[in-house]
Amino acid sequence: MAIIKIKRPQLTIAEKLYLPAVIKGLSITLGHAIRAVLGKTPGAKRNFNSSGMGITMQYPETKWDDQLPDYYRGVPALVTDEKGRERCVSCQLCEFICPPKAIAIIPTEIESDDPWAKVEKRPQVFDIDMTRCIYCGMCEEVCPEQAIYLRQDYAMTGLSRAEMVNDKERLYEIGGVREGLVNKWNEIK
């Protein structure tokens, strides 16, 4: 037979009374409360950079920014390389892949007197609408030029919809410089 019969455990008198268990629970809570008032919550300072008044981080007075891992997926932004070249060539793959259609790009040709004229193409307009972005990271994944990255910023706020659109200038500001990326536009090709 595949049925196994299990006997209910026999409870002791103390267990049947409930009260001892309630007192045990309350004393743990009381212990934590006392330690919180004394500023001694374990791990609060070290792991969460909080005041120690309990485990709750007092955001935005205290922030977690220096604890963010490298792979943190914050605001998507454009990066320049060590030579100061804007890496994006406006291939519009990110615009295509972006699930909520947050990205809008207008490509243009690089003028022939530009030092990077051989790259031929760059974005004239590059807007990411942060009211639409869902921080999925697809743009970063699809980019053939390693030009767009989800950076550490996460606190995007604005008073209007227009303010929530990051334009090209702002995107480079957030993105900054990223070194050591594959560079196919170097001298050999």
Binding site: V89, C91, L93, V119, E120, K121, P144, E145, K184, K189
Partner: peptide
Amino acid sequence: HPLDCPICDQA
């Protein structure tokens, strides 16, 4: 062949 697809209109 160059790796031009991202800037190539034919892509």
